[in-house]
């Protein structure tokens, strides 16, 4: 059966790889992102890979007032939505944010509040249709506040907690809510970080995990799997000890 899939932040490396998986399976895709030329390139690619149809729409997620109409348009085009994947996010420069309250709030607006806004609108739609999957890419960074990355971490943590509650609420309407927590992924977002070593994953591996977890209706996905254990250890370090470190 052809599924209708909405992806917000469709030009992100992980989202694009997920979209390729779904295109190969012949599903219908509605892609939202900011960069129009890139969206056009991606859409053409997905059509050739086998997508039943690809529709694109551009927007700036920080423009909260447009959220309602953007989702409305997606529903008009698709009629129903089986899967929504929210995949955008920006990795801020923690050091720079520490110097600016304004930029810190702005970063939280993009990484947390705009997602919450979308989720609020989508949750009501999904509750009404009583089926489907809402999947959001958060981060292992949301599992514990760390010296080097806590603004980003706090935003991701906010979404994760929101999703817990939403999962609880929508469970009664047979709606599946998936929280995706990737570790280090080799993407343009992390291009400035020195890479290599066994902790870095390719987006293809992460995308495969995501597609599988949507299929299996998993609640929380750590990807690659070993991050579940790494974060278990990091979460269980006592605060008194943790605060001395420089993680």
């Amino acid at each position: 059966m052809v599924k209708n899939i909405l992806i917000i932040g469709a030009t992100s490396a992980i989202a694009e790889t997920v979209a390729r998986e779904y295109a190969t399976q012949g599903h219908k895709l509605y892609l939202i992102a900011r960069n129009e030329p890139r969206l056009t390139t991606i859409a053409a690619d997905l059509r050739i890979r086998g997508a039943a149809d690809v529709v694109v729409a551009t927007m700036n997620v920080s423009n909260f007032s447009t959220h309602h109409s953007v989702i409305e348009k997606a529903y008009v085009a698709l009629n129903t939505i089986d899967i929504v994947l929210i995949a955008y996010g920006a990795l801020p420069d923690q050091k720079a944010l520490e110097k600016s309250a304004e930029n810190t709030v702005e970063s939280c607006n993009t990484n947390a509040l705009s997602v919450i806004s979308f989720l609020t609108i989508l949750a009501n739609r999904f509750e009404e249709q009583s089926r489907g999957t809402i999947a959001v890419i958060t981060s292992v960074a949301g599992d514990r506040g760390r010296h080097s990355n806590y603004v980003y971490g706090a935003s991701k943590a906010m979404i994760s907690v929101f999703l817990q509650g939403l999962r609880n609420r929508l469970h009664h309407s047979q709606v599946h809510v998936l929280d995706i927590k990737p570790g280090f992924v080799d993407t343009p977002m992390t291009a400035h970080i020195k890479k290599g070593g066994p902790l870095w994953a390719q987006p293809e591996a992460v995308a495969k995990d995501i597609v599988k977890s949507i299929e299996n209706k998993k609640d929380i996905l750590y990807t690659p799997f070993f991050w579940r254990y790494i974060m278990l250890i990091i979460r269980s370090i006592p605060e008194a000890m943790f605060k001395r470190g420089k993680l």
Binding site: T41, I42, A44, D45, I48, R49, P188
Partner: peptide, 9 residues
């Protein structure tokens, strides 16, 4: 490697 899209077929 990021130029990895099909354009037309």
């Amino acid at each position: 490697l990021s130029l990895n899209h099909f354009i037309a077929f």
